[in-house]
Design a protein around this nucleic acid. Structure first.
Length: 601
DNA sequence: ATAGGGTTAG
């Protein structure tokens, strides 16, 4: 042994006997080694124990070697874990599992799969540990093939009824976006457990069906399973997606009843939940009650203010965050620029944009540029926006051009609108939204031939408009509406209500803004079509089904239509109701005839 | 030796 190594070992021995619980040395056995390893806090300590295990030959004990590998991996020291693994002359399933799991956790997917393949090829039986570990490698659409292969292995080794294996399979399909396959595995599980419910519910919430997520959550509780904190984070996430304020309050109550402490993740999820359900004040209350806040917590709160149009409050948080020792990241700046943009705070936004890189070393990416285009565009500084476009060093994506197109639309600049729209249609010819936007712009200028051309183009490209949906939560039930919807049991009353309202509004001088109707039909028909927009149906139903004076909360999956926006402002005045409306972009608080967005969205 | 959780432009 080289001298250096010997002296290292001696040194290790000395310091080891001082710092570890193993003494006297005579009592050395695998168990005391494992105990010492569990207590290691730093990599150096692990190395010392490692060296000691070598000098005492304890390393030959499989239990000790495996534990050592596990501890290295746990400290993200895959280098030493691998070195140890490759030197082992005898390995069992634990050794392989630890290696596979460690590589998967640190994101070294290629090595992970390599080791796993070697393991299977050696003729060993995969078990309920190796499978969940290796499944971590499959977490996006591209890797689902690998996931399927592993799923076959699960059958081959007869592991399909193991709870851990099944839960990992459900999770794998969810993460790859194959919700139906996830559900199939989930439904086959005989013992279900909390984790598999959580991944399934999270899957629905993530993939655009938060309503189903909440249904599943109720069913889980009916089956007698008691939710834990992680589950409540997932449910809060689903409530946020759905904007279901009533459910949100139930979640909050439940968390209180169970005395769940507001850790940083649960607290942040609740901030986001309340903000997206329409109450920025409730979000702030949670924020103030949290002891531990990290950069995600602060960014969430800024974003909460942003979507509600309180740009200044978002900005106020920034120095407070710095003072508490938290550094901003990319997302913090997206949140704050978004807040500036939606509140018309041009100078402030510009200042953040220029300081983010210089002062905080956060390099602006395309999202930050998009916020700036949006900010300048909304403020009518199209020329400045155009200049920025020319000097944007990052690759422009659809969101970027989308923001610019929106700006052109607001200011009626048809030349640049066409330029932006063409870039968009080239970039994403399958997205119906951009055809519709350009079409709306043509409609605004009464260029009906071009409107028709767009419609033809959409037909020939086989793109369909994303159907608009609005929904409202009444008595813990979600009521959904589409344009012209007549499926609601109280449909008749809803249309009567709309008729009464429209007469009142027209008396007050309201003229339907038919620019927002795509079709080239005569004015009266266009107006009639406008009256059946989903957000108007939901508003009318809200007025019918809730007590006078209460706030109406409505959500739409797309952006609010301009005419509906005017409509709701007036409704808030003549009915003395507050309407909190969430569209795909932000919140609109309608009160006494005006909107918190300042008609600026 | 096992799994599940929060923020982001248009």
């Amino acid at each position: 042994m080289p001298r250096l190594a010997i002296s290292y070992c001696e040194q290790s021995l000395r310091s080891f006997s001082v710092c570890s619980s193993i003494r006297p040395v005579e009592s050395l056995n695998p168990r005391s080694f494992i105990l010492a390893l569990v207590q290691c806090r730093h990599r150096n300590e692990i190395k010392r124990v490692h060296a000691y295990a070598i000098t005492t030959s304890m390393i030959r004990n499989l239990g000790v070697a495996n534990k050592l590998m596990y501890i290295y991996a746990d400290h993200k020291d895959l280098h030493n874990a691998s070195a140890l693994f490759s030197r082992m002359d005898h390995r069992d399933n634990v050794s392989w599992s630890v290696m596979v799991g460690g590589l998967a956790k640190t994101g070294d997917y290629l090595r992970c799969l390599e080791i796993f393949r070697e393991f299977v090829r050696s003729g060993a039986c995969a078990d309920n540990f190796t499978i969940p570990f290796v499944l971590r490698v499959c977490r996006d659409t591209e890797s689902v093939r690998m996931g399927l292969e592993i799923h076959h292995l699960v059958y081959k080794f007869g592991l399909q009824s193991d709870v851990f294996v099944a839960a990992a399979l459900v999770d794998m399909y969810v993460k790859c976006g194959f919700l139906e396959d996830a559900r199939k595995v989930f439904d086959k599980m005989r013992t279900k457990d909390l984790v598999s419910w959580t991944v399934m519910i999270a899957g629905y919430a993530e993939c655009g069906n938060p309503g189903e997520a909440l249904v599943l959550f109720d069913r889980m509780q009916e089956s007698g399973i008691v939710p834990d904190k992680v589950m409540m984070v997932t449910v809060a996430f689903a409530c946020a997606k759905l904007g279901a304020m009533h459910k949100a309050k139930i979640v909050h109550e439940y968390i209180g009843r169970r005395n769940f402490s507001l850790n940083v993740i649960l607290g942040t999820a609740m901030i986001d939940m309340y903000a997206k359900c329409g109450s920025v004040d409730a979000a702030r209350e949670i924020f103030d009650r949290m002891n531990e806040k990290n950069v995600i917590t602060w960014s969430s709160m800024m974003s909460a203010y942003g979507i509600h149009g309180h740009g200044r409050k978002a900005i106020e948080l920034f120095p407070q965050m710095l003072e508490s020792g938290i550094r901003p990241n990319r997302i913090t700046f997206v949140s704050i620029l978004y807040a500036c943009s939606h509140a018309g705070l041009i100078d402030e936004g510009r200042r953040f944009f220029y300081s983010m890189w210089r002062e905080y070393l956060v390099e602006p990416d395309v999202k930050h540029y998009t916020c700036m285009i949006d900010l300048l565009g909304r403020a009518g500084r199209l020329d400045e926006a155009i200049e920025l476009i020319e000097n944007t060093p990052v690759e422009k994506d659809e969101g970027f051009w989308g923001a610019f197109l929106g700006a052109c639309r607001i200011h009626g600049n048809i030349q640049f609108a066409e330029k932006a729209a063409k870039a968009l249609l080239e970039l994403c010819p399958r997205n119906a939204g951009y055809y519709v936007l350009l079409s709306n712009i043509y409609a605004k200028f009464s260029r009906w031939e071009d409107v028709a051309k767009m419609r033809e183009l959409m037909t020939s490209m086989r793109v369909k408009k994303t159907p608009g949906w609005s929904w409202i939560e009444i008595n813990n039930e979600i009521h959904q509406f589409r344009v012209g919807d007549k499926n609601h049991p109280r449909s008749k009353e809803i249309y009567e209500m709309l008729k009464v309202l429209s007469e009142k509004l027209e008396l007050a001088g309201y003229v339907p803004d038919t620019n927002f109707v795509l079709h080239d039909v005569d004015e009266e028909l266009k107006a009639a079509y406008l009256y059946t927009h989903s957000e108007k149906l939901a508003t009318a139903y809200g007025l019918l089904a809730t007590p006078e004076g209460t706030t109406i909360r409505i959500i739409k999956n797309l952006r609010v239509c301009g005419d509906c926006h005017t409509f709701m402002k007036l409704i808030s005045a003549i009915t003395q109701r507050e309407i909190v409306f969430r569209d795909a972009n932000r919140f609109h608080h309608f009160k006494e005839g005006s909107c918190s967005c300042g008609d600026y969205w």
